[in-house]
Design a protein around this nucleic acid. Sequence first.
DNA 1: CGCCGGATCTAGCCATTGACAAGATACCGG
DNA 2: CCGGTATCTTGTCAATGGCTAGATCCGGCG
Lengths: 193, 193
Amino acid sequence: MTSERTYHHGDLRRALLTAALDVVAADGPDALSLRDLARRAGVSHAAPAHHFKDRAGLLTAVAAEGYALFADTLADAPDLRERGVAYVRFATRHPAHFQVMFRPELYRADDPALLTAKARATETLRAGISTLPDAAHGEDPRLTGVAAWSLAHGFATLLLTGNLSDALEGRAPEDAFRALAGLVFAPGAAEEP
Amino acid sequence: MTSERTYHHGDLRRALLTAALDVVAADGPDALSLRDLARRAGVSHAAPAHHFKDRAGLLTAVAAEGYALFADTLADAPDLRERGVAYVRFATRHPAHFQVMFRPELYRADDPALLTAKARATETLRAGISTLPDAAHGEDPRLTGVAAWSLAHGFATLLLTGNLSDALEGRAPEDAFRALAGLVFAPGAAEEP
DNA sequence: CGCCGGATCTAGCCATTGACAAGATACCGG
DNA sequence: CCGGTATCTTGTCAATGGCTAGATCCGGCG
């Protein structure tokens, strides 16, 4: 057991982060209260400050962890389409990370650790474009990148905000996105039997 | 002048809404404080409660107004592509409305007025799909709709979170999206001279 | 004209929160 | 064994949302 009841918690930082992820996944980042996290961890209301300085500090840590996880996840996908599917899957499996990552006003976007993780994720995303057959590149590959990113991000966002629940009709989001991506990026060619 | 300094404000409701839009556009919905709005309007800290009940009530009004405006804007666009452009334009011109609309945890999503406005917007969006040439419909037109929606929504969202600033290189967002949409939905055919 | 009821706004209060400061306690290296 | 530092606690303050009770204004009706 990691928390017996000593003066020192053992791994308060991790405990607070985990509790924060729970809260955010359940009720969104706005519902997150440092004092509530402290209560959950069984420490005093000022204990979190020592590890994260303030609310923004905690959320910076969440975002940084999210970007790192994100980069790992994306790197595992073979081609652009599966990378999009991984994007959507990440959003559904790690909704707390995802939500915080894309609300920069919540954290310190200039944090070094966060910037490194984010750069890695961005690079992975960019690399995915090159897996497209040359014909599918527009004149401007950068624009193609933005298109792919927008498609995946929009789908994930709409999904998390509950705007797709009726359109999907119980279908697994990832499968729906796979079909949708094929529809858009490889018209009439990439449908699997 | 609409506010001379009487006991009754004249149009406090509108004044509060307008002030709220300013704050949200500048610093996001989290920065919004009922007491601050009251101060801006020169009324007591409890005055807003009479018009909006509570914070969620005020944001419900913002979202409802947003969906109504949104439906009007989308209806003016001739085809699907321009409807997407209008989607992006709406996000840039009415960032406060847009942000609130797509954060349902901030307001009462079952509000009748809001539901009507939202239904109208959704219907307008759905109708846009039928302007596509038949060939572009996938087997499942509903999936095509989700694809179009995701593309526009993702682009708008990434834009507002500052994630596209470098990829666009000073280009006007609407133009960038127009090019991008042509690239995706009418491959090689719809490029304008 | 007078007055009454409802709409609008004010004043006061309480619990909760984030942030800060000062002090207590536990752990670690020498 | 001892001093220093990291970790945690206690106490405090201003700001906020939300509630209740009361003041003020407006319009209609006798």
